[in-house]
């Protein structure tokens, strides 16, 4: 006879006690799930109450089925949506425009937003603000997707779940999004849904400090640019173009205005421009370089983002002209 087994048998709590404990445990979990559901519903209600600029929220609640222009890009495109700028842009271009650009967004986050947008809406044109840093590292691509902040005001939507499922690089964020934990845990749940750039700096003017310009570039760009990484995100970019075209939208690329004190110090920028222009020529993508259109510091709220005066000057100047031109050329498509 196995003595150890006998000893264990004698030491076991009664089967009844274990069954009772498991039943209680099950009930505890069940009540916990109900309470979690209540928390989820509360968070969802807060998102609907306070959500405003979050791009997934915007796509989910956008009133129109069809737009003339969907703007994509990183933070350089965002000022065109600050305050009443989008309404003024719509008026200047006589078009329905939705700005889906995201702070610190490389190619992959833009592609994700576009895919989700096209699952629910249509657009005649996708206007992509081109930034070289978006092509150089994971930080602004896979890692940015998995940043919970991106989804903390995203309402639950099966279309977004389906979109996230399509891209393996976005799977890590799925549990947090689907379970609602990102929303429940959002520390800014009661704060206005606008970026610091819009809330505090948009009407200001930047006084240039070379050291801060340098730090900004160091923050955005990797120490060394890896050609393989660049090639990888270029391929993703071309996939994004194909995605837009598959949904009947034309794809246009614009290089946003930037002050020369900043633009001239971007690493490998000329080579980037040459590579991208060759790619766009090959893929027949219209390209507008407005990077030198507003050189004066008075048009910038910080190192490299347009302030209110800068956006107004753009709308009334080169950017507005470009928009009218591309909308004219896509009429009837």
């Amino acid at each position: 006879m196995d003595i150890e087994a006998t000893v264990i048998e004698e030491m076991k709590p009664g089967a009844g006690a274990i069954r009772r404990a498991l039943r209680l445990g099950g009930l505890f979990v069940l009540v916990g799930l109900v309470l979690y559901g209540a928390l989820y519903a509360w968070s969802e209600a807060l998102v609907r109450q306070y959500g405003e600029r979050n791009r997934f929220f915007m796509v989910n609640t956008a009133p129109l089925a069809s737009y003339d222009v969907a703007i994509l890009g990183a933070s350089h495109a965002m000022p065109f949506d600050f305050g009443d700028m989008n309404a003024r842009l719509e008026k200047a271009a006589s078009a329905r425009i939705i700005n889906l650009s995201l702070e610190g967004a490389g190619v992959l986050p833009n592609r994700l937003v576009l895919d989700y947008f096209l699952a629910r809406h249509q657009t005649r044109t996708v206007l992509f603000f081109l930034d070289s840093f978006a092509f150089y590292s994971r930080q602004w691509n896979e890692d940015r997707i998995n940043d919970a902040n991106l989804f903390d005001r995203a309402t639950f939507d099966p279309d977004l779940v389906a979109t996230l499922l399509r891209y393996p690089w976005s799977w890590p964020v799925l549990p947090g999004y689907v379970s609602g934990f990102i929303k429940i845990n959002n520390a800014n749940r009661l704060a206005p849904d606008i970026s610091e750039m819009e809330a505090t700096k948009f009407t200001g003017t930047y006084r240039s400090i070379p050291q801060i310009d340098k730090e900004r570039i160091t923050y955005l760009y990797p120490v060394a640019i890896d050609p393989a990484v660049f090639a990888h995100y270029r391929a993703e970019f071309e996939d994004m173009v194909r995605l837009a075209r598959a949904h009947g939208a034309s794809f246009v690329v614009v290089k946003p205005p930037m002050p020369p004190r900043y633009r001239d110090h971007l690493p490998d920028e000329q080579q980037f421009d040459a590579t991208m222009q060759a790619l766009m020529k090959a893929d027949d993508i219209p390209y507008y370089d407005l990077s030198a259109s507003l050189p004066d510091d008075k048009f910038y709220e910080d190192t490299d983002h347009l302030n209110r005066d800068g956006v107004e000057a753009s709308i009334n100047g080169a950017f507005g002209d470009m928009l009218r031109k591309i909308l004219g050329s896509t009429q009837g498509q």
């Binding site: 000893v7 709590p13 006690a17 274990i18 404990a21």
Partner: peptide
Amino acid sequence: KPVRFDPAVVA
């Protein structure tokens, strides 16, 4: 020592 599942200790 043999380990048993003890609901009180686990809790």
